[in-house]
C-alpha cells in the first residue's frame, strides 16, 4: 500500500521563476523511512508542506494516506490528525509544561468546547501518557518547556506528534539545532516510534551521511526535481556524496554576471 503518491507536481513561488517543485512521479510505501536530501532551496520543506496539505496553488495529483490533497483548500481535521509534523525549531509553547505541550497534539481528537473546559477522555490521557513514555519524558512531564535542553524539547515535539496517533511523520530538519549526540538520539527515537506504530517517516536533512544510516531510502531534490532515488545501502554513500559535489554551489550558475 502507498502512503504517498505524487504525479506531475508543479509549483512555483512566483510565476516565471524556476519551479520550486517539479516532480513527475513519486511513490512512498506505507511504513517506509525516507531521507529527503539536497541543498538549501532544493524544495525539501516545500514538498513536506505539500504533503502536510499546507501548500497552495500547485498543480498535479497528490494522494496522502488514501486522501487526495487539494491545492486550494485547508485539509480537514481528519486528515491533519494523520500527519504529524516535527519542526526544526521545536515549535513548543515555552511557558507550558511538557504535558501541556503534548496535550496540544491531542486537541485534534477533541471538540473545541471539550478541550477548552479541559475535559479529556481516559483515552486521551492514555495516548498522552503513552507518548510521554515512548519518548522517555516521564520525569520531565511537569517541567516547563523553556527549562529543557534542545534534545529534550525535540522529544516533546515528537511526543506531541505521537499524541495525534499519526500514520505519517514529517520531520523538517529535526536535528539541525542539535549536537551530534542528541541528533543520533532523536533519529533513533524517530525510527523507533515509527517502527512501533507502523508509521511512514520522511525526514528532510542537511546531514545526509548521518541520516542515511537510519532510513530505507534516500531521495535527493535539486531545483524541485528528484535527482536521486535510491535504497539506502553502503553503496549509496558515494551517490549521496556525488549529489553534494555536483551541487557544491547551487547558486554558482545563477550568480554569473549577466553579460551584455
Amino acid at each position: 500500500m502507498q502512503a504517498l503518491s505524487l504525479e506531475n507536481i508543479h509549483f512555483g513561488y512566483k510565476s516565471g521563476d524556476e519551479p520550486a517543485l517539479d516532480i513527475g512521479t513519486l511513490n512512498i510505501g506505507a511504513g517506509e523511512r525516507v531521507a529527503l536530501i539536497g541543498p538549501s532551496g532544493a524544495g525539501k520543506s516545500t514538498l513536506l508542506r505539500l504533503i502536510d496539505g499546507r501548500l497552495r496553488n500547485w498543480s498535479g495529483n497528490a494522494e496522502v494516506l488514501g486522501e487526495t490533497i487539494s491545492s486550494s483548500k485547508t485539509p480537514g481535521r481528519a486528515f491533519s490528525r494523520k500527519i504529524g509534523f516535527v519542526f526544526q525549531e521545536f515549535a513548543l509553547v515555552e511557558r507550558q509544561t511538557v504535558f501541556e505541550n503534548i496535550r496540544n497534539g491531542r486537541l485534534v481528537h477533541l471538540s473545541t468546547m471539550r478541550s477548552v473546559f479541559g475535559r479529556l477522555t481516559p483515552e486521551d490521557y492514555k495516548q498522552i501518557l503513552t507518548a510521554i513514555e515512548e519518548t522517555g519524558l516521564n520525569e520531565f512531564m511537569h517541567r516547563r518547556a523553556d527549562e529543557l535542553s534542545g534534545g529534550q524539547r525535540q522529544r516533546v515535539a515528537i511526543a506531541r506528534c505521537l499524541a495525534q496517533q499519526p500514520g505519517m511523520i514529517l520531520a523538517d530538519e529535526p536535528i539541525s539545532n542539535l549536537d551530534p549526540g542528541r541528533a543520533r538520539e532523536i533519529l533513533d527515537l524517530l525510527v523507533k516510534v515509527c517502527e512501533h506504530r507502523k508509521a511512514t517517516l520522511i525526514i528532510s536533512t542537511h546531514q545526509p551521511m548521518l541520516v542515511r544510516t537510519y532510513v530505507d531510502r534516500i531521495i535527493a531534490l535539486s531545483k524541485g526535481a528528484v535527482i536521486l532515488d535510491e535504497k539506502s545501502s553502503p553503496a549509496s554513500a558515494a551517490q549521496v556524496m556525488a549529489v553534494y559535489e555536483k551541487l557544491a554551489d547551487p547558486l554558482a550558475d545563477r550568480a554569473k554576471p549577466v553579460s551584455a
Binding site: 481535521r77 486528515f79 509534523f85 519542526f87 496540544n104 497534539g105 486537541l107 485534534v108 495525534q164
Partner: peptide
C-alpha cells in the same frame, strides 16, 4: 503553526 498543522481548531 504547529497547532494549526496538527489540526487544532
Amino acid at each position: 503553526a504547529a497547532l494549526s498543522s496538527a489540526g487544532a481548531t
